[in-house]
Amino acid sequence: MSYVTGNQPTGTPTWIELDVSDMARATAFYGALFGWEFEAGAATAGRYTLCLLRGRPVAGLRPVAAREPAAAKEAAVPGHWRVYIATDDCDNTAKRVLAAGGTLVESPHDIGNQGRGALVVDPVGAEFGLWQGRERLGCEIVNEPGSLVRNDLTTPDPGPARAFYPAVFDYTLDGNDDLPDADFTFLRRPDGHEIGGIMGVPQGQPSVWGTLFEVADTDATVARAVEAGGTAGAPSDTFYARMAEITDPFGNSFQVGARP
């Protein structure tokens, strides 16, 4: 069991959320897929729903209407979960974002006593959040079935991204000998911990932070996704896991993987 009991170090993916237009349908799908339970957040007057695994938060569902229309139009990258990266000083990290060429969609702001957050778009157009946890740490279970295991940035323009993220989070870049033919670099915190990577993809594809959920059985998860109203690609074996891409009933795509 991989419980998180304190704020993650700065630069670590710490929370994921999804904008949804139909909360009932979203909770039905993800409950069937991952066995999650759900709780409306009191701090947001019921406008935000926590996804729970064994009673602990592992993700969030954010009603589209909970955003200001102008911000939603500017920030939303349709079709993907949003990742929040931990920081011990949201305001200072937001300043580093601007200095490195990013933009702020939502400036740093308090969310009750839960924490302080912001929404950012990087120089290649990928959106992510900043999170300085207080009462809400972020994902309290990771790296086990039904929870977040990894986030990677895919972009047709990896050069500016590889300059931006080290400037903001002090990451170091490292090649991947397991994928010699891929345009891929690891992102590592100053302590050497790998937090994800940047993958160059063909022109014409959007720049997005992708989300990988761990599952116990990829083939069974694919079957549940289809039965619950989603679609899925065929599972395939990789060096790291047996993986598949799933698209929920709203068109949001993500990956699932069962490690050997």
Rank of each mutant, 00 (worst) to 15 (best):
G125D: 07
S147C: 03
L130T: 10
F128K: 04
G138V: 03
E135Q: 12
D152R: 10
V142C: 02
N151T: 15
E144S: 01
L148Q: 00
W131E: 10
V124Q: 15
N143K: 08
G146W: 02
N151A: 15
L130C: 08
N151H: 13
L130N: 09
I141D: 00
V149T: 09
G146C: 06
L148C: 04
E144W: 01
G125W: 07
G125K: 07
G146H: 06
L137M: 11
C139L: 00
E135V: 07
F128H: 08
R150F: 15
G129S: 08
E140L: 06
E144A: 07
E144R: 13
W131R: 07
E127M: 15
V121I: 14
L153G: 03
V121R: 15
Q132E: 15
S147L: 03
L137P: 02
E127L: 13
R136C: 07
P145C: 09
I141H: 05
G138W: 07
R150Q: 14
E135K: 13
R150A: 14
P145V: 08
G133S: 10
F128G: 04
I141E: 03
P123M: 01
G133T: 08
E127I: 12
E127P: 09
P123Q: 07
F128R: 10
G146E: 11
V120A: 02
G125V: 05
V142S: 04
L148K: 00
V121C: 12
V120L: 00
E135T: 09
R150K: 14
V149F: 02
L148G: 00
V142R: 11
V142E: 04
V124P: 11
V124R: 06
R150T: 13
I141K: 09
D122N: 12
R136L: 13
N151P: 04
F128C: 12
C139A: 15
I141C: 06
